[in-house]
Simulated scan of single mutants.
Amino acid sequence: MDDYFFKSAENISFFYDEKAFGDDGCLKQPKELSIHKVGHALHELDPVFKKFSFSESISSLFSSLGYKRPAVIQSMYIFKQPHIGNEAVPHQDSTFINTEPPSLTGLWLALEEATINNGCLWVIPGSHINGLVRRMIRDENGTHFDCLSASYDHKEFVPLEVKSGTLVMLHGDIIHKSFANLSPTSRHALILHLVDTEGCKWSEENWLQRKTAPEPLYYVS
């Protein structure tokens, strides 16, 4: 799985939901209802996703944030399938994608209504101020975390229930999570992660290592 996962950095790859298979190793429901996500280069290889990712709206957004050479470093279509959609434990996106200085921003586009019932996002407001808690490191043995996961009180989190078409911006260090989707309604979302490739060093310990440099949205000299 590691090799398939690592190669997905520059491919369109498919990943099953953890709960999609029964004890016999067979899918418990149709394949189209068993896929957890597609990633991680939709923004480069699929013309529909590329048109959105490189749109003027996205470029203008990052220009307003002061990014000099922003690039989409990964894209994911998350299905959050009915009844089996994976839980996302509390985490920070910068745990998995790190630059120095930090520059990661996530864009979370609701393609369907996201509610508490079908697994909407939950965030701890202001948690990005405290910085990065832990990192996932890639080395010759695969990937591992540099420390144990922190524990959080659920009372700290607030739900982000949003309508279809809502764009949520997530600081790379914001702590967020989502519960498993036990409802009969899916919760599709498109996620883009962007970093500044000007003045920010890409970590050689990130799981995502490209053979070619990502195409920037724009470049301010």
Rank of each mutant, 00 (worst) to 15 (best):
R138M: 07
L182M: 07
A41G: 05
A88P: 00
I116A: 04
N141R: 07
L192M: 09
D153E: 11
A41R: 07
V133K: 15
L33T: 06
T185W: 03
F52V: 04
S221V: 04
W122V: 00
K37D: 09
T105S: 03
A88F: 14
E113S: 02
N86C: 07
E215M: 15
K80M: 07
N86K: 07
S59Y: 00
L160N: 06
K155L: 03
P30A: 01
I175L: 06
P216R: 05
H83W: 15
V168Q: 02
Q29L: 11
H188M: 01
K51C: 10
S94I: 01
F79A: 11
G25E: 12
M1W: 09
M76Q: 14
V72E: 04
G131D: 11
I97P: 01
F52K: 00
L194R: 04
L148C: 08
C200P: 04
Y4K: 14
S75G: 05
T105G: 00
V48W: 02
V123P: 00
F157A: 07
E56H: 09
N206C: 11
F54Y: 15
L192K: 07
D24E: 12
S34G: 11
V133I: 13
G199L: 10
H188F: 10
S64D: 14
S59V: 01
G172V: 04
L33C: 08
L217V: 13
H188K: 15
V48K: 13
L104S: 07
R138L: 06
N181E: 09
T143K: 13
M169F: 09
I58D: 05
E204F: 02
E18T: 12
K211E: 15
S221I: 01
E140C: 04
L61V: 00
A114L: 04
A71G: 14
K31A: 15
P101Y: 05
D24V: 12
K50A: 14
K163P: 02
H91K: 11
D196G: 02
H40S: 14
E140Q: 13
F145N: 10
V89L: 15
